[in-house]
Amino acid sequence: MAVSATLLSEIEDAFDAMSNSLRLFDERLYQSSLSISLPWVKEPGLQKQIARELYNDLWHKDHQDGRKTTTNYGLVGANESLIVAAKHLNHHKARLKTAIANLKKSELPQLHEHLHKRSIALANSLNQTGLARLHLKQCYRQIPLLESRPDSVRFSWYSSGRSIRKLSVEEAMGRLLKLDISQPHIQIQLEKLSALHQATPLAQIQQQVPVIRANFSWKTTDNHWQRQARNCPLPILIPLNEGDTLPEHNILPTEPPEQRNRALRSDSKIDPTPFLSSLRIHLYRN
């Protein structure tokens, strides 16, 4: 399936702009003498090197699951020029994300029987531009930064448990057809799904992966606290002047605490037994 030269050119231009802004950001970080704290990096002399590697990590590694991203947390002291460079980089990351989204939706059909062709077309297009090994999620994610230095930062492992997405029979069929339909267990599920009325609602249940969350606190002039929280898969840029110290912060264990796999409540509207086990899709109870 052909993809227009215009869309490919937009991706190439966006990637080049993102790469150039990343190079400038990296140079300014390399030149910085401000404090860095990456609690999982035990050797102080490696803190800046590891931070730079994290920010520059854009490509798939061998055997890396494309759905997963590398994660590390911490604080990086940043002067004004580094903050400005980070904002420019974030702008171009967003521009690249938009360009690839345009490629996905503009010229490729949306019907479920062609979904597999869409992914092949996208892969072929990225091969043409030399970007097939690009880890898109790691390219898109923004450099986290603050506009002012907080008085304290508290990191925590956070999980919202599970997400429940309502699907139609047609949507479920499209997802099932993307699997290996030569397999007997997929054929059985296709037969089960085909027997449902088209208006039957379905629920796809997805366990959420724990993420690192940062809670920032600023002490106000009237002796109260202003607070802010966000997910931070990368070290956060903290505005500092020469001689300033990083805010007080805690150290996280390297692994999230064990989560209990909570069963669906007995009064849930969702049948706890998966209807399509390969896709974690359940029926709603009558």
Rank of each mutant, 00 (worst) to 15 (best):
I188A: 13
E10I: 00
G74Q: 08
G130S: 05
F275S: 06
V3Q: 06
Y284E: 09
H197C: 10
V209E: 14
G130H: 03
K61H: 14
S266P: 04
P150K: 05
A229L: 03
N231L: 13
S32G: 02
P253Q: 08
M18P: 06
R230Q: 15
S182T: 14
I181Y: 01
V211G: 04
Q204E: 15
E107T: 09
S148D: 11
T273L: 05
A263Q: 08
A86Q: 02
Y55W: 15
G243W: 04
Q31V: 07
L24N: 09
K269G: 14
S194D: 13
F216G: 12
R149V: 12
R227D: 15
Q208R: 03
R227H: 14
R175C: 01
L7N: 04
H63N: 15
L46R: 12
H91T: 12
I120R: 13
I205W: 04
Q208D: 09
H60A: 07
L176W: 07
N90L: 03
N250P: 15
D222P: 05
S160G: 13
Q198P: 11
P44R: 06
L279H: 02
Q207S: 09
D222C: 00
T254Y: 02
D222Q: 06
G130Y: 04
R280S: 14
R227A: 09
D222F: 03
S152T: 14
H112T: 09
W40E: 14
P257Y: 04
R260V: 15
I251T: 15
L237A: 05
F275P: 01
V209A: 11
N215E: 10
A263H: 10
H135L: 11
E43T: 06
I186T: 09
I50K: 14
V3K: 03
S168M: 03
S163F: 01
P201I: 10
P257R: 03
S148W: 00
V153T: 02
L29V: 10
E53G: 04
K48G: 09
T129C: 13
Q49A: 12
D271R: 00
P201A: 08
G45H: 08
S33N: 15
D57C: 02
P272N: 05
H224A: 02
T129Q: 04
L22P: 08
D244N: 07
E248G: 00
S32M: 01
L252N: 08
L193D: 11
L146P: 13
C232I: 11
Q198A: 11
L177A: 04
S266A: 14
Y284F: 15
N72T: 10
P201E: 12
Y30S: 13
A132W: 00
S160Q: 12
H114S: 10
I205D: 03
S125I: 04
D16P: 00
S37N: 14
L111D: 12
S182N: 13
